[in-house]
């Protein structure tokens, strides 16, 4: 299956989105990424029971932290899909890229 997704996305693999920490997401933005998103299993289908639910909570937390600072929270998102859904993965990647394009570059770059 050859699927197109935006080439400017860098994938970091983790065993479970439950492993994704607030600091990972925050650091990505701090270091200049325009956006960062976590892609986890469908809710209710986590192999570790609730890793993806915890990830969503953390993503929401980081979105609030960024808003506090004055950076758009929507630069950080969470998506869910099942492992067989390659096309959905690509669709979400395009959606995120569109979202970031609309928001423009990370405001920290201008400072």
């Amino acid at each position: 299956m050859r699927l197109d997704y935006p080439s400017n996305i860098k994938i970091i693999r983790v065993p479970c989105t439950g492993k994704v920490d607030v600091m990972h997401l925050l650091r990505a933005i701090q270091k200049g990424a325009d956006g960062v998103y976590a892609v986890g299993c469908l809710e209710g289908a986590c192999h570790y029971n609730e890793g993806n639910l915890r990830a969503r909570e953390r993503v929401n937390h980081v979105r609030r932290l960024l808003e506090e600072i004055g950076i758009e929270g929507d630069r950080v998102r969470m998506y869910n899909l099942s492992s067989g859904e390659g096309p959905t993965f690509a669709a979400y990647a395009r959606e995120m890229a569109e979202n970031i394009k609309a928001l423009g570059p990370n405001p920290l770059k201008q400072h």
Binding site: V22, L26, Q30, I71, P107
Partner: peptide
């Protein structure tokens, strides 16, 4: 670490 990251970004935005 989280607070320092926030402060760092916020102060950069404020120049």
């Amino acid at each position: 670490a989280v607070l320092n990251a926030e402060l760092d970004m916020a102060r950069r935005l404020d120049d």
